[in-house]
Design a protein around this nucleic acid. Structure first.
Lengths: 183, 183
DNA sequence: GCCTATCATGAACCAGCGTTCACGATATTG
DNA sequence: CAATATCGTGAACGCTGGTTCATGATAGGC
């Protein structure tokens, strides 16, 4: 039995609304608010997702996928001749910039740090990222012992709720530890 | 009319219990729990503090005072011949170590970053800290444009809820940005 | 030792939030 | 066009956690 047509329609409406609300308010967005934004009753949310954790998880997984795509694209640009370190810096700035506006990617980024090596996306992300890092090391732009985990750690501790000037100052303070250390 | 004897006794019992509970669980400690720990009814809390925010604020202010004392002591040790940079590193490590165990200083540290130049303690802390920083710059141990705010920023972004190994790794990554930058 | 202002008590109140469930609506199948 | 399984509804539930208030106790002055 394939699912009813209006059911799939509602499912996407719910995911859209959840994405929107979590983007605006973070995972603290109420189920009532998400339901209202979707033009649906609360009970309908629970027909499609057993509990809030699962709904939020679905949205955050989407975001992790987008980040993974971004990283793989950067890896391919590097293979095409771009400087690895530039791509890495671009990635970091992009994620940080997004985290400042979008509460969803902020929460998603936190997931990356929380489940160090467990997730599916993690594997996709991790290997592509590791290749980028290795390439930057070969260019001499990155200190030899820097790992993927180090980047996750830094991204997780970034002051995403501070004004742009503070965020950029933070980057200035932190980046040298990845490159010029020990010099 | 001076306050009744049992009233002042209860006030300190409440502050003691609040300090203890906030140390253990952070500012999320329930009013009921604090009251129970103080051996007092909830209503008594509200006789001494109009709301939870004020009670928590009182406890955190105490902690900020302790940090201020620590900084001034370091300043005086420097005046007595100690290396300024060593004192600064000691301070940072001490605060970070405490933040990992004590949820109260963690929350207090967050206050430092949140109210950049407003607080009374802030002034006491800020000037003493600024002198330390200047001394370290004179020794050539600190990059010229580093400010007190930079330290607050870094302390605020420290991964206090991570295991010791991660915390020390974070320090290794971040410290070079204060010293060897631009070299 | 009384008398009253001060203080303590804790059950009750209220608001927010995730979750459930009995009922009505509706898409799909034959 | 039934017949039914699937789906949607939203009021109600339970829990948590801060806050209040009518009532009773008691410290301290006369």
């Amino acid at each position: 039995m394939s699912p009813r047509a209006d059911a799939v329609r509602n499912r996407t409406k719910i995911l859209d609304a959840a994405r929107e609300q979590i983007t605006l308010q973070g995972p603290d967005a109420g189920m009532d608010e998400i339901a209202a934004a979707a033009g649906v009753a609360v009970g309908t949310l629970y027909r499609h997702f057993p509990n809030k954790t699962d709904l939020v998880g679905a949205v955050l997984t989407e975001h992790l996928d987008r980040v993974a795509d971004d990283i793989e694209a950067a890896r391919e640009r590097t293979a095409g001749g771009a400087k690895a370190m530039d791509e890495i810096l671009g990635l970091v700035e992009r994620v940080l910039e997004a985290s400042a506006t979008d509460h969803a990617v902020k929460a998603a980024a936190r997931l990356l740090g929380a489940y160090p090596t467990d997730e599916l996306v993690e594997d996709r992300t991790g290997t592509a990222f590791a290749e980028l890092i290795q390439a930057a090391k070969d260019d001499g732009d990155l200190h030899g012992d820097v790992t993927v985990q180090d980047f996750y750690l830094l991204i997780n501790t970034a002051p995403t709720d501070q004004p742009p000037a503070v965020r950029s100052r933070w980057l200035t303070l932190v980046l040298p530890g990845l490159t010029a250390r020990g010099r």
